[in-house]
Write a protein that binds this DNA or RNA. Structure first.
Lengths: 241, 241
DNA sequence: TGGTCGCTGTGATTGGAATCACGTTATCAT
DNA sequence: ATGATAACGTGATTCCAATCACAGCGACCA
């Protein structure tokens, strides 16, 4: 498989696009020929921290695939506060279902850090669906996962237990951004405290206080603003129950 | 079209199944032949108020279509409180995406009133998908709608503004259960105050108080426990902004 | 039709997150 | 390295929904 990948001809100037395509599960199961079909249709784009991929109201006409970096998808409440709906990182994608209906995005998307994306236009995506029919089944599977995640998010944000909500978010980050260094679990956050608050429907201060609480319980250890060491994963998971 | 429907042979003992099939939009666009294919595969079931369609953990192996009545889909919080995720009424369906993965329901479903349902087994549904391929595109469209609704629900429940959340729920009920009588909009609720609270992540008392508030503002008029007259729809909609 | 039981409305109290305020710390550009 | 600037932590206070308690009403059954 790796050999096949290495034999491919069309490589990207800024990244190795074979990696870009093969790491997103929507396409990762494809054989060499199908994958090349996909690769030839892909466009690449880079965004700096804070830059917008699109705004609410923009016409939805491409599939966005996060290659490297991370993205927040959000709306604004009438009071002007952000409500984050999705936090996407490497391998996640966005805008798939919007391609089936001609419509406008109902939310904003912005890069949380320097981010590289692969994109497919509606036309190219639909060509791929025709040429590789079992991808549409994959899309359905992902729609199902997304629904499941949203159902869980509803249960999380309606929970009155703040500690639980934040513990769940930490576990989520651990799974997406965590790595083990010298036997210690370490998370490097793509988001600020305020972003966390905006995802959970809380305030910055409440998040800070709960993290301090976890620290005083010996569960975590904050190193600067963007790093947390998990000292006691079990205890953290117990908080999510 | 109606003539076609009337010519159909297989009718249900307890209901007119042609109606059952033609009123759900998943199948309503089918021609006579395809619709008959579907009708022959459908089973029918009735549930009394409070009866469970399934419990969390049960194997998901059928598509449920609400013919008449209404259904709540919910989980329990660790504290034992219900969290309602979906309120379904005539024409809505449930369990579609679960049929693509062999898995268990992650929640409970129960009838809110005497309810009649049409069901399809996984095998029959998959036969239909093979025989009428454009239904799978419809399923995707509905998955998209469901995601949109859940995204809105997240924004609703994270809103600190209780009045807004309840106003949105009333508008939702108005669209699903409302009818105009003598020029007055009237909602007959399928749910108790407590159910409303469990859907919005609030308490019964808070819902009661907000409804009283709307009544004192002249926006609504409560008639018994299960009926509300909408006196000023515009004002109610303004509350949702 | 009356009686019962569950559902509902509302007051009093409590609790906990939002808000306000400000000092401290991290981060980034130069 | 250093200063500027944004992000963060934390105390004091406020506000509002949860909780507790109970009376009134409604739905439903005998």
């Amino acid at each position: 498989m790796n050999k096949d990948l290495e034999m491919m001809s069309n490589r990207c100037a800024t990244c190795n696009e074979t990696y870009c395509v093969s790491k997103i599960s929507l396409f990762s199961h494809l054989d060499r020929e199908d994958m090349e079909t996909v690769i030839r249709k892909i466009h690449r784009q880079s965004y700096q921290k804070g830059e917008f991929l699109f705004q609410a109201g923009d016409a939805a006409e491409r599939l966005w695939i996060v290659n490297e970096g991370s993205i927040k998808v959000f709306t604004y409440t009438p009071e002007g506060k952000e409500q984050i709906l999705y936090l996407l990182s490497s391998g996640d994608f966005l805008g798939d279902l919007n391609l089936f209906k001609k419509n406008a995005y109902p939310y904003y998307a912005a890069a949380l850090e320097p981010t590289r994306l692969c994109t497919l236009t509606r036309e190219n995506f639909q060509e791929i669906l025709r040429e590789v029919p079992d991808i549409s089944e994959k899309v359905l599977t992902y729609a199902y996962d997304r629904i499941t995640n949203l159902e869980e998010l509803v249960q999380t944000v309606t929970s009155k237990n703040i500690g639980k909500r934040i513990a769940k978010l930490l576990i989520h980050f651990l799974e997406h951004f965590g790595l083990e260094r010298n036997g210690v679990l370490e998370i490097t956050f793509p988001v600020s405290r305020e972003d966390m608050a905006n995802y959970l429907g809380l305030t910055r201060e409440t998040v800070s206080r709960q993290l301090s609480q976890f620290q005083s319980e010996g569960i975590i250890d904050m190193k600067g603003n963007r790093q947390i060491l998990i000292r006691n994963r079990k205890a953290l998971e117990d908080h999510t129950l």
